[in-house]
Structure formats: C-alpha cells, structure tokens
Nucleic acid binder design. Structure first.
Lengths: 315, 315
DNA sequence: TTGTATGCGTTATCAA
DNA sequence: TTGATAACGCATACAA
C-alpha cells in the first residue's frame, strides 16, 4: 500500500520541498565558506576542493569573500548564522579579530579553520599547512647553493603560515650553523605592494641579498615587479623562491622555485572534517597537517656566486 | 504598544528564523552560480563580482563548479532547483547541452547567462563580452607591425567567445585588405594541452607563423610551454597575444599583450540583472555587452621582421 | 490598533 | 501497517 504512494509520487514527479525539510529537520545541508581573498588562486583552489567534496556528501557551499578586508570577517560569519548554515569553513584575512574568536566559541555551530591559530580549548577542527618543512628545505637549498645573504619577505608574524615559514627559514640557518641576517627579514604584509616596496628597499642596501624568498604567493607579483623595475634578472643576479605553485611560477622564465602544498586537498579536508562533525556531533575534533615540499627550479637552482660567464649565457 | 514588542524583541536578541521566512515567503534569498571552471582566475573574478554585488542586496551565492566537465552542468542546475534558489547565474562549460537549454526555458526560475548563446525566445538575460572588438584591435596591431602569418588558437566555434574572437580576427584581415592563412587557424579546445600541441604543430610547419594569438587565457599556459620546449623567445622570434589579463601576462618577461575585459564587473552585472528580475518579475530582460580592449606589451609591440640586431639586445 | 487563526511542506508521534 | 495530528517559525488575512 505504501508502494502505491511511492509510485504516485514518482509519476507526479513529486520532489520534497527542501526548505520545508530544512525547517522541520533543523538543518540546511549548507556550509558557509568564509574566504579571505577569492582573487588569490590558492584560495580559489581551496574553495574548489571544499565545494567538490561537500557536493558529494549532499551539502552545498555558500561563499562570502572578505576581499582582504579583515573587518568583513565577523560580519560574514553573522550572515552565515542568520542563514542557518550547518557549519562554517573559516579562512580569515588576518589572525582573527576578537569578534571572530568569540564566534568560534559558539557551541551552536561547527567550525573548521584553515591555517589559522585556534585557542586549544575550542572544539574547532583545523587544516594546517606544514609551511615550516617546505621553507626549511627551500632555505637549505639556497644555503647549499652558496647563498648567505637571504632575504625573507612575508606577512605579519601573527599569521600562522608566516610564523611557520619564518621558523623553517631560521631553522635551516641554525642547522647549517649559520645565522640569518636580521636586516633581510621583512615580515609586514602579504600584499603585492609590500613585496614590491621591500624588494626595492632590500636590493638598494649596501649589502643587498643574493637570494629572495617570497613568503606568500601574492607577494611574488610585487617582488617580480620591483626586480623588473631595477632591471635585474632572476636566476642570474639573484635567486628567487616563492610559495605555492601557480601558472606564473611554472611558466615564468626562469621557472620559479616554490614551496608547494596540495591546496585542493586542504579544501576537501576542511569540508570532510566539518561534515564529520555535523553527522556525528560528539565525534572528536580533527587536525590535519598538510605537508609542503620544496620544488627547485631555475630561479634558484644554480651555484652562487656565478663562477664562469659562460654558464650564464642562457640566463 | 508595538514598541513594547519591538523592545522586548531586541532585548531578548530575537532574530527571525531565515528558513521559516523562506518557507513562508517562498523565496530563499539565494542565487546559484553555475561555474564552468573555478581554477580559471577569470571565472574566480566573475564569481567574486557576483558574490560581492549579491551580498549588498541581501542575497547569498551558492556555488557549483563543473570543473570543465560539461556533463555536470545539467546536474548542478537540478541541484540548485532542489534547493530552491531564487535565480541562477549560468556559465556553462560547453555551448550548452540540450538538457541545459531545456532548463533555461523553465519559467519558474530566472536565469542570467554569461558569454553563451541563448535562443532569443527565452526570457533570459545575458552578459556578453565584446570579444570581437578587442581581437580586431589585437590583430590589427600585429598586421601593422608587419605580421602576415598570424596563428589563432582557440576553442570550438560553438562557444560564443571563440566565435567572436575568430570574427574579430578575420575582420581585421579584411579591413587591411588581406586574407588570414587558414592553416594557421586552430579552433579546437580551450584546454592548455590543446594550446601546447597546436603551438608545437604550428611552429614546426614549413612556413611557421610569426605571431600567435592565444584565444583563451588557459590556452596561454600551453602555448608558452610549447614555446619554451622549442627554445624560442617570445618578443624576439615570435610575437604573442593572449586573452584576459592575469598575473602571468603582466609579469612574464617580455610582458604579454592581451585583450582585456572587466571580469569582476561582468559578475556584478550578472547578479544585478538577476536580482532585478527577482524583485520585479515583469521587468524586461537585459543584455549587456561588456567592452574589451587590446593592451599592447613587449610580447608583440615591435616591428616584424626584426630589423637591426641592436634593437634586440634587451629582448 | 490589537488579537487571533490559518497555512507554507515536512516529519515525528501517537492512536487506531 | 495505516491514518490522523501537531509542530517547526513566520507572515498574512481577517476579525474584533
């Protein structure tokens, strides 16, 4: 007798009303993704991974892009709450304002945080990049190639990825029994303009660096801009390393060495952990440390100082 | 007396239940964005524009990424319908399958289509790029610089942007009283691999092109890859023009000439038109033609054939 | 102005 | 197994 109902339903093309279901069941099958900066291909990739995974589990993803404007983060979180998303993936612009921090303590909703510090008492899962390892490899590589004056340009140390990168950088020097030149470490901002200005500044020092590490993929654009303006050639007068592999790093000539990580997978993991929590609320929170790896390319893979002029010919 | 209620509401921190409102009002305040390929920075920008605008109007944006897989388009549309989004911004992978075409005729929901053909009888707004104009300028520029053997690599002509680009390309030749070499026009796919293979093929012709136009920003990666493999130098042995300005085109050396358009604005317009229709259902549909413009850079901005060797020095 | 009842489409509960 | 009923939270229509 229930068969008759089911058959009639399919024949009439009945589809349950998703909103009515949501109201009754108390969940919306929707995740919010608070993204710091969509125009950054790295974030676009993370979003892609999260959306792909969420969709396979029947969840949809709503987006709110803070466009690098830290003040918008908290506002967007509230917006998601109003819309009753089941959980939120958080990739804040800054290190997380007080307001955002308070919200993460909200027990009514589950959060997964990407590459940001979370007070350990909060029941919040995290997807963290192991930036230190890749950066240590990169710095080792530069030291092994003969560099001693290596510059590091990155964002404020309050940001976890920056702090980890700086740690890897310093550890590599320590391992080699060397000390990095403190005047070459510039930790101020991840914006391209900062990369440009600090590069110009560094290269006009009396003792300029022989290698530059851009600790952030957006910074690279500024670093390259400054190098071009000064008429220098990467891979010849200067070694260069960046973070995260994008078209630019692969196709620039000389190709640019990078510390890579699987960003798509980070997005997948974020959605995975979040949905786990939603399906089973008393499941323990999870923390992933996503590996990074250094990929040497022509922008840095040569001995310093350049020995013969012949070797330089193809620049 | 209503003041007492309002005051109590604010004091108790009352917030209306969005889902209950949706059920009652019959709309969700949500737009679906069917995006062909999120890893393409151009689409990421369009999404960003749409989301930004939608948010200012109180709408949220749900994402479904087809990842270049045409079959997923229709499936994702159905998914949006199930979730009762109020309207959908459609940027399909291919020229639009039959299934998608049928769905666009669905009068229960409003659509805005980005850069795809729409049967004129459908009540569907469109945001179209004026690719022909920019491509005409680009081709003129190459002809004026002395090129006669100009290759065009792009996707299938069933795609509106491709067809428009090919039209602009041919019109430039016609205007100059010339004929393009048909064997240099390769309209097959927008994927990087196609760009790579066709570039390799073109450059091994007995009469290779002296300039290549990449009609699609993803193609450029493949084109550059092939050029590098062959050991050629852009801006020296070969002129190069691409479509859509990205980090790579700006920062590659020599900088790469491009046909640009305001992608962020296209996203904004899409959301704008869509929300217009939602607010006022009998408003007429709108069509935007977003201008494109050619930006000459060092990859193509030189006289052909190269006259003196001196001029070449800075490559 | 103020109050009260009904329905949006589900789903869960309880009774038959 | 089957059927009837209430409730999710809001908004609207109508009565007082």
């Amino acid at each position: 007798m229930e068969q008759r109902v089911t058959r009639a339903a399919t024949e009439l093309g009945y589809e349950p009303h998703f909103i009515a279901q949501s109201l009754r069941k108390g969940n919306t099958g929707t995740l919010g993704f608070l993204v710091a900066d969509m125009s950054n291909p790295v974030f676009a990739d993370i979003v892609r991974g999260a959306e792909d995974f969420a969709r396979t589990k029947g969840y949809a993803v709503m987006l709110a892009n803070s466009e690098g404007n830290e003040g918008l983060d908290a506002e967007h979180l509230r917006l998601f709450l109003r819309r009753r998303v089941d959980g939120i993936i958080v990739s804040t612009v800054g290190s997380g304002s007080e307001e955002v921090g308070r919200e993460l303590a909200n027990p009514n909703i589950r959060y997964v945080v990407i590459d940001r510090d979370v007070p350990p008492d909060l029941k919040v899962s995290g997807i963290m990049g192991d930036h230190a390892t890749g950066m240590r490899e990169a710095t080792m590589h530069l030291i092994n190639r003969g560099h001693r004056s290596i510059a590091l340009i990155s964002g404020p140390e309050s940001l976890r990825p920056v702090r980890e990168r700086a740690r890897g950088f310093r550890e590599a020097f320590a391992t080699a029994g060397l000390k990095p030149r403190k005047d070459l470490i510039r930790l101020g901002s991840l914006r391209p303009e900062y990369g440009r200005d600090e590069t110009a500044n560094l290269l006009s020092l009396a003792q300029p660096p022989t290698a530059i590490v851009a600790g952030g993929n957006r910074l690279l654009a500024g670093v390259l801009e400054a190098i071009h303006t000064l008429g220098l050639e990467v891979g010849r007068q200067l070694a260069l390393v960046s973070c995260d592999d994008v078209d630019l790093t692969r196709l620039y000539r000389p190709a640019i060495s990078v510390v890579v990580r699987d960003t798509y997978k980070m997005g997948q993991l974020a959605a995975d952990y979040l949905i786990d929590q939603l399906i089973n609320p008393q499941a323990p929170i999870q923390n992933a440390l996503v590996p990074t790896r250094f990929v040497a390319r022509a922008s840095s893979d040569f001995q310093w100082p350049r020995t013969s002029r012949a070797e330089v010919s193809r620049a």
